[in-house]
Simulated scan of single mutants.
Amino acid sequence: MSKTKVVTRTGDGGETSLGRGVRVPKCSDRVEAYGSVDEVGAMIGVLRSMLEDNAAVDARLRAIQIDLYNICADLHMPGEAGAALRIDGSGLERIEAELGEMNEGLPRLANFVLAGGTRAAAFAHLTRTVTRRAERRVVALARAEEVNPEVLRYMNRLSDYLFILARTLNENGAKDDLWAPRGVR
C-alpha cells in the first residue's frame, strides 16, 4: 500500500507552489486568500461536529465545505491554466435559496445580535467573522491580481448565511442575545 508523502521539505524556505509549480512566498496575497478560505472550511467542520441531531443542517454545511475546497482550488491555480477549476454560480444559488428558507422562520430584527446563545450558534457567529476576514483576503488579492468574481460573491454571501444559520441554531431567534445601545436597556 502506497502512502501520500506529506513532508516534502520544499516549503522550508518560506515558499510554496501554486498550481503548475509556480513558487510564491507563503505570505503572498494568493496564499493568504486560499489559506483563509481553508480556515473557514475547517471551522465549518467543527460546527458540523456540534450538530449531532441535525442531519439536514449538517448536509448543507458539508456542501458548503465542498464549495470552499473548490474555491481554494480556484484561487490556487491563477490564470488560464486554472480555467477548468473556476467555480460557477451554482453554489451561490444554492446557499441563497437556503438562506431565504432559513430567514423566513426568523423574527424581524430591531437591533444587533450579540454572538452567543447555543454553543453551535456562538460557533456559527465566530465562523461568520472568520469568513469576513477570508473575504477581505480575497478582496485584497482581487485588487492585485485577477480573481473569479464568483469567489467574491460566494464569500460575501456565506457570511450572511452563517449569521442567519446562527439565529436558526438559536431556536429560530428565541435565544438571540440582542444588543442595546448604551443608556437604553
Rank of each mutant, 00 (worst) to 15 (best):
S90Y: 00
S90N: 12
R60C: 13
L109S: 12
M50Y: 14
C72Q: 00
N70L: 08
E32N: 13
E104P: 06
D38W: 09
N156M: 03
D88T: 12
G35D: 05
L109C: 10
V147H: 03
D58G: 10
R132G: 09
G100V: 02
L158E: 05
T168L: 11
R119S: 15
R30G: 01
N148T: 07
L141R: 07
N54I: 03
G82Y: 02
R30S: 00
V130Y: 01
Y154K: 02
D67N: 06
D53S: 15
Y69E: 07
S49I: 04
A166R: 08
A83F: 05
R136K: 04
R167T: 07
R157K: 11
N172Y: 14
A73Q: 04
T127K: 08
G100N: 15
L51G: 02
L47H: 02
I64C: 10
L141G: 03
A73S: 15
R167S: 07
A142Y: 04
H125T: 10
A144K: 12
A115F: 02
M77Y: 11
E171R: 15
V130M: 13
A121L: 03
L92G: 05
Y69R: 06
A140I: 06
R128Q: 14
S36E: 14
Y69N: 11
A140V: 02
A121T: 12
M77V: 13
N148M: 12
G100F: 01
G105H: 09
R137L: 06
V46R: 09
I164K: 08
T127M: 14
V37P: 02
H76D: 12
R94C: 00
A56V: 15
Y69W: 13
T129Q: 12
L158P: 11
A33N: 01
P78K: 08
R119L: 15
N156R: 00
I66T: 13
T118H: 08
R143A: 13
L126A: 14
S49K: 02
N172R: 14
M77H: 13
A110M: 05
Y154M: 07
T131M: 07
D53W: 13
T131F: 06
E104W: 09
G91V: 03
R94I: 03
R62G: 07
E32P: 03
T127R: 03
G35Q: 01
S159N: 02
A166E: 02
L68C: 06
R143K: 15
A84W: 02
D53L: 14
V139Q: 10
